[in-house]
Design a protein around this nucleic acid. Sequence first.
DNA 1: TTCTTTTACTGAACAGTGTTTATTTTATAT
DNA 2: ATATAAAATAAACACTGTTCAGTAAAAGAA
Lengths: 203, 203
Amino acid sequence: MGISERKEREKHEKRRLILDKAMQLFVDEGYENVSIRKIAEKIEYSPATIYLYFSDKDEILGNLQKEGFDKFYDFLSKAESETDPVQRVRKLGRMYIKFGLENPEYYDLMFIARAPMKKYIDGLVWTEADKSFLLLRNTVEYAMEKGAIKQGPSLPVAFGLWSLVHGVVSLVNRQRLSEIKDEELGNLIEKSLDEMISGLVKI
Amino acid sequence: MGISERKEREKHEKRRLILDKAMQLFVDEGYENVSIRKIAEKIEYSPATIYLYFSDKDEILGNLQKEGFDKFYDFLSKAESETDPVQRVRKLGRMYIKFGLENPEYYDLMFIARAPMKKYIDGLVWTEADKSFLLLRNTVEYAMEKGAIKQGPSLPVAFGLWSLVHGVVSLVNRQRLSEIKDEELGNLIEKSLDEMISGLVKI
DNA sequence: TTCTTTTACTGAACAGTGTTTATTTTATAT
DNA sequence: ATATAAAATAAACACTGTTCAGTAAAAGAA
């Protein structure tokens, strides 16, 4: 009998619906306007129903965070097409920033918000994010092996680059660059990134 | 008659009391646990009284943010004692990170939280923060003038350095570095900073 | 001192939040 | 048709920021 299979499928579909509507609320109305009651209204069920599919709000946020990391990784992977080692690092940085600025809500969940991290506190591995960091680290190591950038441990360089691009995205998204005009911002980011990366290049 | 002066003084003292207790709650119990009702309980007045001294919660946060910037600027200014231009940049970076890690609640209000920024949206100047950025920019320009780091526009370099240290602080404070052990973190930060700054040095 | 006016303060309410539990509705099996 | 199991919900609890009518206290005027 396919009833239990259908039920399983329906359960999965409802979880999906909740996540989709929650993300839609995020994108349309911003972080502050995502409440269980609003999600409930969107899916046309009572608020209590949501708790049959997720144990709490943080689990919803955590799932969206994970999906953000997946999208993020897929997006960054495109930088692999670049053959020149330094250009590949540069492109990875540019794509990181592009993703962060074009998907501020995902970026928030992934790297800024406290809520979805509660589940991971005390040693639980954060595998999704690590995948992307490994991509960066491998790109740095590739450039080192090719002799394109100064040799040495890859971790400090990769961490420095990550901090740099994360700093850019979070300062922009949280509106801490009031003195910089919008039309100059793109250029400034580009120049800063080039300046810092060219410092790593072997001469 | 000194009555109105006394009243003025008392009003000021109560504002101060509210801000102090609010900050104390921030530090002791974290961002999530700061509510008007809890502040009210701490100062032993009703919640409604707080609205006689501040128009809303964001104004309280905004005031604490401003005070954070003042402390921050005073703290960073100590880097001026360093005479060597490159060492001065390095020290400024280190002090930035030190402040951010040792005062996570202030740092949050200053550079991460959305709430206190609402007031400044739409062009209102953000002077307190700009002062600190100017300090960084001047330090970079000083190093350029002395021929210690590569010449060129100071803005992209200063912005890059700011993004770097902000990235470090916010990744650490928001617990996005689960794969790095606590005892290795200090060293990693130091190495990353050195790596990036030495890239700017003229050869 | 007494009376009036101004200032300071608060209780109670409103609309919102996340979450839980008892109850009802719906679907399946006999 | 009836008993059982599953799914959905209404209502409540304890919070949140904020407002406003009403009270208590202090100040000024008589």
